[in-house]
Amino acid sequence: MKKIKLKRIIKYSVVAWASLTTITCLAAIIKYNLDLNAYIEQSEPISQTKIKTSPDGTEVYVVGSMHFETNNFKRDDLYNYMSKVSPSIILFESDKQTVKRMVKRTDFLNQMMSSFKKGNKVESFVALKYLKHHPEAKVIGFEWEERDLFHLKYNYKNNMSNLVGTALKLNKEKALSKEESLIMDNYHKVSKKYLNLGNSKTPYDFNNRIADSIIKIRQAYVYDKIPQILKTKDLTEELREFLPVHMSYWDTRNMAMVNNIIKQIKNNPNQRIVVLTGYSHRYYLIDELKKLQEEYHFSVRAI
């Protein structure tokens, strides 16, 4: 009798947990869509209602963004900034299939997860609002298709954090040479400037040459100079194997993004294209795209 009661309790507990989880997930998805509807239904200035083509050749604008709103940076800051270009195509920093689901609003897992995260997502809301007011425009993914599988395979974010953390720990323990310690000190300085970009009040604050230079220097430390230090240090087996993977990651990912952008340039001649990306990628994409302007008959422009 006691066993039967215990089984019933377990059964009802599982059913209750499953029901509560389902209701919570559905509520999160509904909340996401209510927030999205409220945002994209907002009106926009008449001067920004018509998209523009480019009869003199394809124009490409690489627009850096923050993925989430901050106290200073809001969705409309990016929307108004991007709308000045009035693009016919927005290339979105995600893979093609994910972006297709986003546009159709069937990306339910992302919707649910977004509802549980702190802060409001920026790029997806901005892109969908732009489509709402410019239905003739297109939003297409351009991210490295293998990124998510790569992150999962190599536990990338945790291992990256542990790698840089190891170098910081060695420097704190005075276990580095004078030259190596100087590299870490310089990394601290440029990282402060890099993190300060997160306090920007307008898109212009991180869409400029000075910001690009800060990010480029910072990424050189993270993906080259610091790993070069760690090559000679005693690392765990996992980090030792991860080191060359990490060192090639930034180039591999960004060059895949460049190649995907070029495909869309070739497929969409004489258009105004906005490449909407996290601001850390901006400098890299601009540098590489400029090398290909003449070959593929397009121009990289600034807002």
Score class of each variant (00 low, 15 high):
residue 261 I to T: 05
residue 103 V to D: 05
residue 255 M to E: 13
residue 57 G to F: 06
residue 16 A to V: 13
residue 156 Y to F: 15
residue 123 E to W: 00
residue 208 N to D: 09
residue 32 Y to V: 00
residue 60 V to S: 04
residue 277 T to R: 10
residue 157 K to A: 14
residue 293 Q to T: 10
residue 94 S to V: 09
residue 32 Y to T: 04
residue 296 Y to L: 14
residue 265 I to V: 13
residue 274 V to L: 11
residue 241 E to C: 04
residue 219 Q to G: 12
residue 180 E to T: 12
residue 151 H to G: 01
residue 182 L to R: 12
residue 285 L to E: 04
residue 43 S to F: 01
residue 148 D to R: 14
residue 291 K to N: 09
residue 142 F to H: 10
residue 161 S to K: 09
residue 251 D to H: 08
residue 75 R to M: 03
residue 178 K to R: 05
residue 212 D to S: 05
residue 84 K to G: 15
residue 19 S to E: 06
residue 160 M to G: 15
residue 157 K to E: 14
residue 276 L to R: 07
residue 253 R to Y: 12
residue 297 H to F: 09
residue 63 V to H: 07
residue 279 Y to Q: 12
residue 284 Y to E: 02
residue 189 K to F: 01
residue 187 Y to K: 10
residue 181 S to N: 13
residue 113 M to D: 01
residue 233 K to G: 02
residue 143 E to P: 06
residue 161 S to H: 10
residue 110 N to L: 12
residue 299 S to K: 14
residue 32 Y to G: 03
residue 179 E to G: 11
residue 212 D to Y: 01
residue 248 S to A: 10
residue 27 A to N: 15
residue 15 V to P: 01
residue 84 K to C: 12
residue 211 A to I: 11
residue 277 T to M: 15
residue 67 H to S: 04
residue 219 Q to N: 15
residue 199 N to I: 12
residue 288 E to D: 11
residue 99 V to L: 06
residue 270 N to E: 15
residue 117 K to T: 11
residue 92 F to P: 07
residue 49 T to Y: 02
residue 278 G to R: 06
residue 260 N to Q: 04
residue 105 R to G: 03
residue 138 K to N: 10
residue 95 D to G: 01
residue 26 L to I: 14
residue 202 T to A: 05
residue 121 K to M: 10
residue 267 N to W: 09
residue 134 H to V: 06
residue 46 I to N: 08
residue 203 P to C: 02
residue 18 A to R: 07
residue 195 L to E: 12
residue 85 V to M: 13
residue 203 P to Q: 02
residue 145 E to T: 09
residue 242 F to Q: 04
residue 42 Q to A: 06
residue 65 S to V: 08
residue 191 S to K: 14
residue 171 N to Q: 15
residue 296 Y to I: 14
residue 196 N to K: 04
residue 109 L to T: 14
residue 228 Q to M: 06
residue 114 S to Y: 10
residue 30 I to D: 11
residue 185 D to G: 08
residue 267 N to C: 13
residue 141 G to R: 05
residue 237 E to K: 08
residue 76 D to M: 00
residue 16 A to H: 10
residue 12 Y to A: 01
residue 82 M to C: 08
residue 127 A to S: 05
residue 91 L to I: 07
residue 40 I to E: 01
residue 196 N to T: 04
residue 160 M to V: 12
residue 88 S to M: 12
residue 54 S to I: 07
residue 170 L to H: 01
residue 126 V to N: 02
residue 210 I to F: 13
residue 104 K to V: 05
residue 273 I to K: 09
residue 40 I to H: 03
residue 287 D to V: 05
residue 54 S to L: 03
residue 294 E to P: 04
residue 193 K to M: 11
residue 263 K to R: 07
residue 186 N to Q: 10
residue 231 K to I: 07
residue 24 T to E: 08
residue 36 L to C: 08
residue 8 R to T: 13
residue 73 F to R: 02
residue 271 Q to N: 14
residue 251 D to L: 09
residue 175 A to Y: 02
residue 275 V to Y: 03
residue 79 Y to D: 03
residue 133 H to L: 00
residue 227 P to G: 03
residue 225 K to W: 01
residue 14 V to P: 05
residue 169 K to H: 05
residue 297 H to L: 09
residue 217 I to D: 13
residue 173 E to G: 01
residue 298 F to G: 11
residue 120 N to D: 00
residue 147 R to L: 15
residue 3 K to M: 05
residue 40 I to R: 01
residue 278 G to E: 07
